[in-house]
């Protein structure tokens, strides 16, 4: 039966506790760090001449959809009633939001070393030791809103700008794609200053600390951001029912700079041997509630 992913702001106290407990247990079993490693291993940038499936690429949405499903299944093996909540960052925009409370994500990092010191993922509680990071600190770090040079979370207008684009993705199918919902929502631009980050990318920048780098999955808020990104992909499809739901339909040919570097709609997407086309519908597995 399909389960429902809820807005984190509407979780009951018991739901918050069950989600956090399942995440902590996954960490204790060593499975959580498998997800961290996998995300690091699959971060291939678009200047590299090899297949990239997770970022700067059309399969950004289906790859992370499957990644979330795997994570949610792992949580449900611990507690079958748990789902991944989503964080609507167009509404919950402040470090004072309940998302960052003691019983969910915990708070900001402290100023001196950005160490998170409150909530379930605070180092001192002993349940959240970083093992797979690009920095050597064992504690989770955050820098919410980057106070020394502040920037805001993406706005409703930023989302609307991406949502209005009727094309799923366009050549060159990478971080330079000048149009298309995928790159606009993933958030790569050629702008400078604070305009350089849009939507998904900007959320990573706003949270800062571990969320900024290769070990972003170390911060559990990673999943809440990506659940919302996944929900927005649903919204885009409903808004553009006549648009091709995934592009490219066919693999770029040998004459293309993207030959063998992106996954077309019916090609397998590592590591799961699943095609983007297989992930266009998910209602048998889960739906989004309010």
């Amino acid at each position: 039966m399909a389960h429902t992913r809820k807005n984190q702001s509407s979780l009951s106290r018991a739901e918050r506790r069950r989600f956090v407990d399942a995440v902590l247990k996954l960490k204790r079993r060593g499975e959580y760090d498998e997800f961290v490693r996998m995300h690091i291993d699959y971060y291939v940038s678009d200047g590299e001449d090899r297949l990239r499936v997770a970022h700067m690429t059309p399969s950004f949405f289906p790859w992370h959809r499957r990644f979330l499903i795997e994570f949610e299944r792992a949580l449900q093996r611990i507690d079958s009633g748990v789902t991944v909540p989503y964080w609507d960052w167009t509404k919950d925009r402040s470090p004072a939001a309940s998302l960052w409370g003691e019983d969910l994500m915990g708070g900001n990092g402290r100023r001196s070393d950005r160490r998170v010191t409150t909530g379930p993922f605070a180092y001192r509680n002993g349940h959240w030791v970083i093992k797979e990071g690009v920095t050597d600190g064992e504690f989770l770090t955050r820098d919410l809103g980057r106070p020394h040079d502040p920037l805001d979370l993406p706005t409703r207008r930023d989302v609307a700008w991406a949502m209005a684009d009727p094309r799923y993705d366009v050549p060159p199918w990478d971080s330079r794609a000048p149009r298309g919902f995928r790159n606009k929502l993933e958030g790569w631009t050629s702008a400078s200053g604070k305009e350089r980050w849009r939507n998904h990318n900007r959320v990573h920048r706003w949270v800062g600390g571990h969320m900024l780098g290769g070990g972003s999955v170390n911060d559990p808020v990673f999943w809440l951001n990506h659940a919302f990104v996944d929900l927005l992909w649903d919204r885009w499809r409903r808004r553009h029912p006549r648009s091709a739901p995934y592009l490219p339909a066919r693999p770029p040919g040998p004459g293309s700079s993207q030959y063998r570097r992106v996954v077309a709609r019916h090609e397998p997407m590592p590591p799961w041997d699943v095609r983007p086309d297989d992930l266009l519908e998910h209602k048998r597995l889960y739906t989004y509630g309010s």
Partner: peptide, 9 residues
Amino acid sequence: GLMRRADGG
């Protein structure tokens, strides 16, 4: 670790 972006960065 450094990676190359398609825009040259």
